[in-house]
Lab assay of single mutants.
Amino acid sequence: GATAVSEWTERKTADGKTYYYNNRTLESTWEKPQELK
């Protein structure tokens, strides 16, 4: 079946920190989402 992984995108802030952005829920998080573990 379909997985939720594609909803999350790994992004970088202007100062180079990595965060994760969810295209479906429009939420962002510093922690790696469960779906990516």
Rank of each mutant, 00 (worst) to 15 (best):
G1C: 05
G1E: 12
G1L: 13
G1Q: 13
A2R: 03
A2P: 14
A2T: 12
A2N: 13
T3K: 04
T3Q: 12
T3Y: 06
A4D: 14
A4E: 13
A4W: 10
V5P: 12
V5W: 11
V5N: 12
V5R: 03
S6H: 10
S6R: 08
S6A: 11
E7C: 05
E7L: 04
E7Y: 07
E7T: 05
E7Q: 07
E7N: 06
W8Q: 00
W8Y: 02
W8A: 00
W8P: 00
W8V: 01
T9I: 13
T9F: 07
T9E: 15
T9G: 05
E10N: 02
E10L: 06
E10I: 10
E10K: 04
R11L: 14
R11T: 05
R11S: 06
K12E: 09
K12P: 03
K12H: 11
K12Q: 14
T13H: 04
T13M: 05
T13W: 03
T13G: 07
T13E: 04
T13Q: 04
T13A: 07
T13V: 02
A14R: 08
A14E: 12
A14Q: 11
A14F: 08
A14S: 11
D15I: 03
D15T: 08
D15E: 09
D15K: 05
D15M: 05
G16D: 04
G16W: 01
G16Q: 03
G16E: 03
G16H: 03
G16M: 03
G16P: 00
G16Y: 01
K17Q: 10
K17G: 06
T18K: 07
T18M: 05
T18S: 07
Y19D: 02
Y19Q: 03
Y19H: 03
Y19L: 04
Y19F: 10
Y20Q: 01
Y20F: 08
Y20H: 02
Y20P: 00
Y20R: 00
Y20D: 01
Y20S: 00
Y21M: 04
Y21F: 15
Y21S: 03
Y21V: 09
Y21E: 06
Y21P: 00
N22F: 00
N22L: 00
N22S: 03
N22M: 00
N22E: 01
N22P: 01
N22H: 02
N23Q: 10
N23G: 07
R24Y: 14
R24N: 11
R24V: 15
T25M: 00
T25G: 01
T25P: 01
L26H: 15
L26S: 13
L26E: 15
L26Q: 15
L26Y: 14
L26R: 11
E27N: 04
E27L: 07
E27Y: 04
E27R: 04
E27Q: 10
S28A: 11
S28R: 10
S28D: 04
S28I: 15
T29M: 09
T29Q: 14
T29E: 04
T29S: 11
T29W: 05
W30N: 06
W30P: 05
E31M: 08
E31W: 07
E31G: 04
E31L: 10
K32D: 04
K32Y: 07
K32S: 04
K32W: 05
K32E: 08
K32V: 10
P33D: 02
P33N: 02
P33W: 02
P33K: 02
P33S: 02
P33V: 03
P33F: 01
Q34T: 12
Q34P: 12
Q34S: 13
E35Q: 09
E35L: 05
E35V: 09
E35P: 06
L36F: 12
L36T: 05
L36A: 05
L36I: 08
L36N: 08
L36P: 05
L36Y: 11
K37Y: 14
K37R: 10
K37T: 14
K37I: 15
K37N: 13
